[in-house]
Amino acid sequence: MIRVEGVSKTFRGGFEALRNIDLTIRRGEIFALLGPNGAGKTTLISVICGLVNASAGRVLVDGHDNVAAYRRAREMIGLVPQELTNEAFTTVWDTVSFSRGLFGKPKNPAHIERVLRALTLWEKRNNRLLELSGGMKRRVLIAKALAHEPQVLFLDEPTAGVDVELRREMWNVVRDLRDQGVTIILTTHYIEEAEEMADRIGVIRRGELVLVEEKHALMHQLGRKELTLHLDTPLSAVPPGLASHELTLAEDGHALVYTYDTSRPGKGEGTGISALLTDLEAAGLQVKDLHTRQSSLEEIFVSLVRENA
């Protein structure tokens, strides 16, 4: 749906915001772009949407160059910006209708009503924007972006400053849109958001795309798992017979933690769990309970950013 080919951006003053970015966004997917502050997420979105001129490279939206064929490219895109940018004195209905007209679409009150209802803004349609809460204003921005029935929706930090309940509501709205065939690209600081919604994840750092991967594959490949063994009798130290498993003591000696990697088999065989259990029995330790935990995307993200530092 979107192809970014060799895009670089150097601002006046020499700041290199994007470096030779190549990226393909598939039709109908939710793609999450992660990265620390100042990594270049918003600049990349701005280049694709035509708000910032690329210094090099090109962007194709459904095959249309976003500079040479900007009308065809832009009419497919809806953008929800990071900042709450609204004209305070207009009503919800007027501002959303304005967005539709601005994108060259004829009036369609039924569509505007559908969008406002989906975003639970219908009751507020005659309110001026200055009368709305921050969460409502953010929903208005989403409504404006959807007013012209775009095929691609960019959400730049869509849930920043939004409470947990509203955030979950928004996730549902985004999923509904994806189900309707809209391609969604979101940037977020909330890893939970990407983990919850994204099909694929891209990590950008200092203007470079350091990784693009299916979310599940990413978590599978990079996800470290932890096996926690709860012991009957507490230990003061890891017994010498278990030293080769690199265990750590936890919970004041009541638990042993074994870290393994499902994609990189441990010593000897598989993940090394069988060998560990055998050695535990040989050491005479009684396990009363055990549980495993997979690394969260946040941990993966932090480790990725550190690796590339």
């Binding site: 035509g50 708000l51 009308r71 832009r74 009419e75 940018t85 967005s99 994108f103 060259g104």
Partner: peptide
């Protein structure tokens, strides 16, 4: 000036309009 000031100019600049 006002859309520039409020930030809503993004919408004008990203619209399919010359």
């Amino acid at each position: 000036f006002f859309p520039r000031f409020s930030g809503s100019i993004y919408e004008i600049l990203s619209a399919p309009i010359s």
